[in-house]
Design a protein around this nucleic acid. Structure first.
Length: 476
RNA sequence: GGCCCCAUCGUCUAGCGGUUAGGACACCAGGUUUUCAUCCUGGCAACCGGAGUUCAAUUCUCCGUGGGGUCACCA
C-alpha cells in the first residue's frame, strides 16, 4: 500500500486565512488518521505577491494551532528543498523535457499583444484563449530570438479536443474538455515556474498521495492531468474542498468578520476550538456528537464525510464550541491561560478562579473584564445599589451585618461564611438574591461576576472590608 | 457569457425508495441557581420548481431555477 502523504502548500502572502487553515487541517487530519506524513511546502513563485516574513507567519500560525508538519522548510525531510524558489533548477529540467517531447512550446508574445488578443476575442464573444501564434515558430527562428535575448515563456500544449477526467474524492467523477482550457504558461519569463508546473513536479517528487485544496482549483485540474501524463507520472488522489462562506454565501472575507487564523487566537478562541469548529464546516463525523478534541478529530476524520457544497462560517456556533473547549480544560490548564490573559492577577488566585470561571466564559477575552475588580477600585453608583438592593436603610443594615461577619471570621472559609450569611438573611427575612447582590455590587461594582462569596478569599479580608466601608459611605 | 461544481430548518448537517424527515447552533418559553453562566425540559423551523421512473420519491433520471467557482507570465 502506498504511504499516505499529504501537504499544505500556501503562498507566503501574509496572514493565514481561516479557510486556508481548514485546508491545512483536513490535509493534516488525513495524514495523521492514516499514520502518514504531512508536508509543508511554500509556494513562493510569485515575487510580486510575496510578503516579508511570510514563511515565518505560516509556520508560526500552524504551530500555534498544533498542526505540526513532518517535513518542510527548516524541518527534517529528505525531499526538499521545501521552498519552491529554491527548486528552480528542478522545474527547469522538466520544462526542458516537455519542450523536447513537444508537450510544451516557447512563446514570445508580449503582454500587450496578449491583452489585445483577449480584448478582440471578447469583443467577438469568444472565450479568451491563447491563439497559439508561437506554436508555428520554426526551430531556427526560436533559436535566433532566444539568442537575441528576447523574453520568453513556456506554454503547455493542451490536446485539441479531448475529454479529460479525474475521480475527485469529494466531487466524484469530473469531466472537462481540453478545448475549454488555455495553453497555460508553465515557465514565466523571470525563470520562475507557475503554480501549475511547480505543483505537479513537487507533488510527484515529494510523493504526495492526496492533494487537498479548495474547489477553486477544479477548473485547472485538466492542466495538471495533461502534465502528469506528459511526464509519465501517476496523478495523486484529488480532494477538492468546498469553500468557507460568509453569511451572504460569498467566500468568507474580511467584511464578514475575522478571517486571519491568528486573529481568532487573539480574540480569545482556543486553537482546538477553532479547529474543531472548522472541521465541522463542510465535514460531518457521522455521529450526533460534534464536540471533539484534536485527537478525536484524528480518529474520526474521513474524506467521505466531506461536503460538496460550501458552508457558511457561523461565528455564533464557533463561540459555542469554544465555550465547550474552555469548560473541558483542567483547572491547571485554565490557570495557565488565565496567567496569560490576566497577568495582573496574583498567581495564588489563578487556580481557584480558574475553576470558578470555567463554565462562565465563552471567549478568553472576557476574562480581564470579569476579573478587573481585583485590582481596579470599584466605581459603584448608589442608585444601582439601591435599585438592586432595596430600601436604603435595609441595604445599610445588610452591609453592616456583612462587615461584622467579615471582621469576625475573615474571608477564607467560604462555607462558614455562607452559613453565617444565610443565618442573617433568615433572621431579617431578607431576599437571598438581594442580599448577595448587594455584596456583589459593593465588592465588584458589577452585577455580573464570578460566584461572589467564593471570590472573597482571593481578594483578602482587608480589601473586602474597605469596599464594604466605601459602599456604606456612599449611602451616607 | 462558455465550462465546472453545488442545492434538506436562518446556519452546520443526518438521511443513501416506504421515517411522526433526526441532531447541533441560534431563537423562544419554562425549571434549577445568591448575579452571570452552566445544566435540564419543551417549542419554533427545512426537503428550490417541473416532468419522468416506480406500487411508492427528500432519496434515482432529465429539464429548469438559484448559488458558487473559473476563464493571468496570481496562486
Amino acid at each position: 500500500m502506498v504511504k499516505i502523504r499529504t501537504r499544505f502548500a500556501p503562498s507566503p502572502t501574509g496572514t493565514l486565512h481561516i479557510g486556508n487553515l481548514r485546508t491545512a487541517l483536513l490535509s493534516w487530519l488525513w495524514a495523521r488518521h492514516n499514520g502518514g506524513e504531512f508536508v509543508l511546502r511554500i509556494e513562493d513563485t510569485d515575487k510580486k505577491r510575496e510578503v516579508e516574513g511570510g514563511v515565518e507567519i505560516i509556520k508560526k500560525t500552524l504551530k500555534e494551532f498544533g498542526l505540526v508538519a513532518d517535513e518542510g522548510p527548516g524541518l527534517s525531510g529528505d525531499k526538499g528543498p521545501y521552498l519552491q524558489s529554491e527548486r528552480l533548477g528542478i522545474y527547469e529540467k522538466y520544462v526542458k523535457k516537455l519542450l523536447e517531447a513537444g508537450d510544451a512550446y516557447r512563446c514570445f508574445c508580449s503582454a500587450e499583444r496578449l491583452e489585445e488578443m483577449r480584448k478582440d476575442q471578447q469583443k467577438e464573444g469568444k472565450i479568451p484563449r491563447y491563439d497559439r501564434k508561437c506554436l508555428q515558430l520554426s526551430e531556427e527562428e526560436i533559436e535566433e530570438r532566444l539568442k537575441r535575448g528576447e523574453k520568453t515563456v513556456v506554454r503547455l500544449k493542451m490536446p485539441d479536443k479531448e475529454d479529460l477526467f479525474w475521480d475527485d474524492m469529494v466531487m466524484g467523477k469530473v469531466k472537462i474538455n481540453s478545448a475549454e482550457v488555455d495553453d497555460t504558461v508553465l515557465l514565466k519569463s523571470d525563470g520562475y515556474p507557475t503554480y501549475h508546473m511547480a505543483v505537479v513536479v513537487d507533488d510527484h517528487l515529494m510523493e504526495i498521495s492526496h492533494i487537498f485544496r479548495d474547489v477553486r482549483w477544479m477548473s485547472s485540474t485538466p492542466k495538471h492531468i495533461v502534465l502528469y501524463r506528459a511526464l509519465g507520472w501517476e496523478m495523486p488522489k484529488i480532494v477538492h474542498l468546498p469553500l468557507v462562506l460568509g453569511a451572504d454565501r460569498k467566500p468568507l472575507s474580511k467584511r464578514h468578520g475575522s478571517v486571519a487564523a491568528d486573529e481568532f487566537l487573539k480574540e480569545g478562541y482556543l486553537p482546538e476550538a477553532v479547529l474543531n469548529y472548522l472541521a465541522l464546516v463542510g465535514w460531518n463525523p457521522k455521529t450526533d456528537e460534534e464536540l471533539f478534541s484534536l485527537k478525536q478529530l484524528v480518529e474520526k476524520f474521513d474524506i467521505e464525510g466531506i461536503q460538496k457544497s460550501g458552508g457558511v462560517f457561523d461565528y455564533k456556533k464557533l463561540l459555542h464550541v469554544n465555550a465547550w473547549h474552555i469548560s473541558q480544560k483542567t483547572d491547571e490548564e485554565l490557570s495557565e491561560i488565565l496567567g496569560k490573559w490576566v497577568p495582573k492577577l496574583k498567581e495564588e488566585a489563578r487556580l481557584g478562579l480558574a475553576s470558578l470561571l470555567k463554565v462562565r466564559v465563552k471567549k478568553l477575552s472576557e476574562l480581564p473584564g470579569l476579573l478587573k475588580f481585583f485590582w481596579e477600585g470599584v466605581n459603584l453608583s448608589s442608585e444601582l445599589l439601591l435599585q438592586k438592593g432595596g430600601e436604603k436603610e435595609v441595604v445599610k443594615t445588610m452591609l453592616e451585618e456583612i462587615r461584622k461577619v467579615v471582621e469576625e471570621r475573615g474571608v477564607d472559609e467560604v462555607e462558614k461564611m455562607k452559613e453565617e450569611f444565610m443565618k442573617i438573611i433568615e433572621k431579617n427575612e431578607w431576599k437571598v438574591g438581594k442580599f448577595f447582590m448587594v455584596l456583589r455590587l459593593v465588592i465588584c461594582g458589577s452585577s455580573i461576576t464570578p460566584p461572589i462569596v467564593e471570590s472573597l478569599p482571593y481578594l483578602g479580608k482587608e480589601k473586602v472590608l474597605k469596599r464594604i466601608e466605601k459602599g456604606l459611605e456612599q449611602l451616607g
